[in-house]
Design a protein around this nucleic acid. Sequence first.
DNA 1: ACATTATCTACTAAATTAGTCAAGAAAAAT
DNA 2: ATTTTTCTTGACTAATTTAGTAGATAATGT
Lengths: 154, 154
Amino acid sequence: MRLSTQSRYGVRAVFDIAYHGGGEGVQIKDIARRQEISPRYLEQIFQKLRDAGIVTSKRGPRGGYSLAKSPEEIRLVDIIRVTEGGLEPVFCVHPEKSGKDCDRVAKCVTRLIWKEAGEKLEDFFDSVTIQDLCEKSELLGVQKERGRSLMYYI
Amino acid sequence: MRLSTQSRYGVRAVFDIAYHGGGEGVQIKDIARRQEISPRYLEQIFQKLRDAGIVTSKRGPRGGYSLAKSPEEIRLVDIIRVTEGGLEPVFCVHPEKSGKDCDRVAKCVTRLIWKEAGEKLEDFFDSVTIQDLCEKSELLGVQKERGRSLMYYI
DNA sequence: ACATTATCTACTAAATTAGTCAAGAAAAAT
DNA sequence: ATTTTTCTTGACTAATTTAGTAGATAATGT
């Protein structure tokens, strides 16, 4: 029962923008450096986040990614649903979505259990926002690194 | 975030013994037939279940597997912990267990979230027993197939 | 003795995951 | 206009994990 790196990286990346960005666009290379994630790999993840309307992008010099909504409005479930492709622990929970369905459904007593488990998880990830992470991070004393790229122009 | 087949099969196998066994030992081939699982693969899973003290085994003719405890005492979490090797969604949640630890721990705000998620899941699977599955199955009208192998001796 | 059933160890094929690479297109700065 | 920066797209690959097979062995009941 483990979470893919895309989900873990995705959450951290969105958090990073919220925490270090200060409203400005944040570049992949900076997120990659701070979060210690391969920039090439992050690109792929941001593609999904962008398509899902979680972040917006801007090209060119001083471009980068920004949050499409405020940190209080972004819930972990939104991110994970995209990067993980759903939270249900077994495909048979939603046969209509996965395409294939199991012919044991009628007599399958475990299917409902898996479904419920997925919902518990979903509820939990729905209860946590990016803002919550930012607050926790401040409590941890993680320093904000705002406007780093501006330094060069002073 | 998906459950391995070992966990799904494991739960169904233990349930099968409880539901169709009626106290008697149940053989892998019968479980495999009823649950539509490869018997060879089931062997491996039963190895783990046996080592964990969830089932007991008996070799030779009329041998098979039996529950080590009553169905009310076997919780899904017991089975899944064994077949899945823990319920935490990321290795870094328990660095002491997985061996490797992450050097970002001090400033990692997501780690605690993953930990909590794993606990939610654990709590849920702790609240469901094999007995619960048996009751659900009766409600579904699944026929019990007790003492099938005895038929040949009548 | 013999058939039956679990036990143990090793092996393998397929799928998934995690990540790399290269070429291109848009936008801003100069 | 040109250059630079940065995102965009799609293909590719290596490593790992998963799911399953296979063969030989040990115990047990008849």
